[in-house]
């Protein structure tokens, strides 16, 4: 439903978005990941028709944003960064205005407004000026505005930014609930968010697209993906440590073993598999035959933080290299 081809945006001499292409279909929740200033908001602003691209093509629900902006905007719901709305209006009058602009008339207006307000739990503050509302409620007003016309495509720029953990949880539930028959794009720099709501993730840094795949694929790029953290109880940690490391290294699927800590009566290790291999069975039987006393046995899913840092900072270096 969204198709972006070779999209670029230049601000003066500065390239904020550099040749980005991707597409997203129905049922997908696409996460835009990237450090601050990466170009996430700029990309979203171009998709929603706020900014005109320097070059490239965007189509939403098979309408071209550039040649058919009004039609495209009808099929879009957009929550801009910071969820701006008119501070002196009440949520009721604001949503009423949005419903009218979205082309609803008569009873349908009230129905849509009430429906959208209910979905984001806004009913208790409908008649208070928006400027007097808390951050969480202001965000909900923005949500209600974006989903009021039940759009096929929903674009949200950092929807959970600045919310407390409970509010973040609510927002994620809402996104999941709406995901079934829509295409949703959310930007974030919170990695756990990608794991909990997105079906696909895109990493952008310095305006360039550096990764496009599932959150699982992203995890599996981690050194820690399928690695095992093992803690063993022992009276003489140092001797056992050496013995254990030597033994584990002989296992066919094990790539390397690292000693994390050795303290009084305990030793911890990270065991890394060879690429793509699973080592839990091998390690487990090795433990059995040696009769080690296990305190902790944990298969890691991978550290997104690490992959994220890896992907975005390696481009840092190449960007700097290109300059010098």
């Amino acid at each position: 439903m969204i198709e972006v081809k070779h999209l670029s945006k230049q601000f003066g001499a500065f390239k904020a978005v550099d040749d980005i292409s991707f597409s997203a279909g129905k049922g997908e929740v696409l996460g835009f990941l990237g450090p601050n200033g990466a170009g996430k908001s700029t990309t979203m602003k171009m998709i929603t028709g706020f900014l005109t691209p320097t070059s490239g093509d965007i189509s939403v629900c098979s309408n071209n944003v550039l040649t058919d902006p009004i039609k495209t905007k009808k099929s879009l719901g957009y929550l801009p960064e910071g969820a701006p709305s008119y501070p002196d209006m009440t949520p009721l009058s604001f949503l009423h205005f949005i419903a009218e602009i979205r082309g609803f008339r008569g009873n349908e207006i009230n129905k849509r407004v009430v429906d959208a307000a209910n979905r984001v739990n806004l009913h208790s503050v409908m008649n208070r000026p928006i400027e007097t509302l808390s951050k969480g409620f202001k965000r909900r007003v923005g949500f209600a505005q974006a989903i009021l016309h039940d759009p096929d495509v929903l674009i949200m720029d950092e929807p959970t930014d600045g919310l407390d953990p409970n509010q973040k949880h609510e927002v994620r539930l809402l996104i999941k609930e709406m995901a079934k028959n829509k295409t949703i794009v959310v930007s974030t720099h919170i990695l756990e968010e990608v794991q909990s709501v997105c079906t696909r993730a895109i990493i952008i840094a310095h305006g360039k697209l550096l990764f496009d795949g599932t959150p699982f694929e992203l995890e599996s790029r981690s050194k820690y993906h399928n690695a095992i953290t093992l803690t063993v109880q022992t009276d003489s940690p140092d001797t056992l440590s050496d013995q254990l490391m030597a033994q584990l290294k002989t296992l066919p699927s094990v790539d390397s073993v690292e000693n994390i800590t050795t303290e009084q009566g305990k030793a911890s290790f990270s065991i890394f598999p060879k690429k793509g291999a699973s080592i839990s069975k091998e390690v487990h039987s090795c433990i059995k035959t040696n009769n080690w006393e296990i305190d902790e046995f944990h298969v890691e899913s991978g550290s997104l933080d690490e992959v994220f840092r890896d992907i975005t900072t390696s481009s840092d270096i190449s960007a700097k290299g290109a300059l010098t």
Binding site: G49, I70, K73, E81, I101
Partner: peptide
Amino acid sequence: KSGTIELLVTLPIS
């Protein structure tokens, strides 16, 4: 100043 222009311009009106 308030950023509502982003909202206004992305609504389906010219």
